[in-house]
């Protein structure tokens, strides 16, 4: 049976709740402690972006299975302003935190799959999967 959780993000509490839900599911799926921490960090970054740039949105967390492989899928969805230049934000060293590895390029590194759908003034959906090895 596949589990899906979703957490509303409209405050820092939401960020913590999303982390918690993500860690719990990751552990249940069988991820080790390092990967658990990676997945949680990815969720954190995505949730924080929602909170900072779109004010509110949702994080969906679910288990995925593909040809026998198990994984965790995180979807971050908001109806905020959208991202103008996606190519630019995916460049290393671009984030406002000044290139210390975090931000969206960091999320991409922490996870195995990463896609952004973003439309200006219409919101952003980021989907990311990590597979259990």
């Amino acid at each position: 049976m596949q589990v899906q959780t979703h957490v509303d993000i409209h405050s820092e509490w939401g960020i913590v709740a999303a982390r918690q839900a993500g860690r719990k599911l990751a552990r249940e799926i069988g991820f080790g402690s390092v990967d658990q921490a990676r997945i949680t960090t990815a969720i954190s970054e995505l949730a924080r972006n929602i909170y900072l740039y779109a004010n509110k949105g949702q994080i969906y967390i679910e288990e995925v299975v593909n040809s026998g492989k198990r994984g965790i899928k995180i979807v971050a969805k908001d109806q905020g302003p959208g991202i103008k230049d996606i190519r630019k934000v995916m460049e290393d060293g671009y984030t406002t935190s000044g290139g210390l590895g975090a931000g969206l390029p960091g999320v991409k590194r922490l996870m195995d799959e990463f896609t952004i759908d973003s439309e200006l003034n219409n919101g952003t959906t980021i989907t990311s999967v990590k597979w259990l090895r």
Binding site: A37, R38, A102
Partner: peptide, 11 residues
């Protein structure tokens, strides 16, 4: 350490 790891990989 996750953050340090990311900074390392970015480097």
């Amino acid at each position: 350490m996750i953050g340090y790891g990311l900074a390392h990989r970015e480097f």
